[in-house]
Design a protein around this nucleic acid. Sequence first.
DNA 1: AGGTAATTGAACTCACCAGTTCATTTTCAC
DNA 2: GTGAAAATGAACTGGTGAGTTCAATTACCT
Lengths: 213, 213
Amino acid sequence: MSVGDTEKSTSDRGRLDKRRAIVEAALRVFARVGYAQASLDLIAAEAGVAKPTIYNHLGSKENLFRHVMTETAARANGKTMEVLESFPGAADGLRPGLEDVAGKLVACYTDEQSQAVRRLLYAEAVRFPDLFDQVRASGPDQFIEALAGRLARLANAGHLRIDDPIRAANQFIALVYEELPTLSTFGSRPLDPREAEKVAVAGVDTFLRAFGS
Amino acid sequence: MSVGDTEKSTSDRGRLDKRRAIVEAALRVFARVGYAQASLDLIAAEAGVAKPTIYNHLGSKENLFRHVMTETAARANGKTMEVLESFPGAADGLRPGLEDVAGKLVACYTDEQSQAVRRLLYAEAVRFPDLFDQVRASGPDQFIEALAGRLARLANAGHLRIDDPIRAANQFIALVYEELPTLSTFGSRPLDPREAEKVAVAGVDTFLRAFGS
DNA sequence: AGGTAATTGAACTCACCAGTTCATTTTCAC
DNA sequence: GTGAAAATGAACTGGTGAGTTCAATTACCT
């Protein structure tokens, strides 16, 4: 019940393979039917595990949900940050470099688990507002900051004309993701990757028209 | 249960003031606690109405939800389309005209009821995928179409340089709304209107840098 | 005033589900 | 192989909520 319980009940109780099976099954079930509709009997069956085992490992439905969300979000966020490694650093090949980054970001964004977490986060924002904040602070906020840094470096070297790097970073991802959420019915429907690629390239094009030097 | 029932059970059964009270209360309760957590006893109490009256008017919880969503979305959509009436038609005062439109659009987007519907639609996209499609088709899709038309007219008159009006329209709203959803924790938190105004102006600025002639 | 339809409240059915208990069995480490 | 920790399944509790029923009441129309 209390917040501090997380660390204790989340520690290394029980067998790890069971634990992993539970968490993976929970994500699938939550993503498929939502938090309220996901019964622990269903999750237990999907994980190939008995119901009391879930309680032994993770304590409660609420705690299970929090754990699944934060863990999956952290993994997705890690992949997104990795993309910035390949961010172009010079004017040479700037456009193809940005297109490459944009394409990879779209791939991260439309990754099945990533979409599932995002959808669940929005869906349960009323029930778990703190979870929403926590995940955003450790994910998108950090990412925007990092992207702004890369853009600022390019601007500083005279390759782009940018006044406010944070704003430019937000606009970059706004342009690149564009109507991705709506196109895929917010992740509950498969998205044509060729269409997504076109959107990303068009986004980069508009970005360079506005900020290229 | 079946789709055709909507028209019948939605018709003019019972007193209209009660009906209106029910629908308004239902939107408030759904927005506050979500679909699953909203009990009909709670909605009845909030509407100042007996529970059987709800069933007399609207048949079932599911039907009540559908009705509330489509009706509220239609009203919000109407307001958004009205904004396009003031869309600038000439190069003269283009920037302030676009800023004006952008500001009004942000106001529509951040309207309390509008945000509530959007949040509920995303939250319940898994349970009501058809509802999501229906609302989007009669709302955003139409709006983008209309906005693209206005932009195309400006481009045709040589005031903007636009190849693909639909894409430009999507990018316009992507830039103007930017990180509005995240800023307000997807509508579950108040948003500073001055901040929103700045985002809109910056969006128009970037749009004009990219597409101005 | 009188009659009809809508409304009310309260009690009730039925189903679902979180969380617990416990006796039994499996797993694994030494 | 033995013993302790973990897992199992099945049954059980307690709570909640959708949807219904009905007899009594209230509002509206003429």
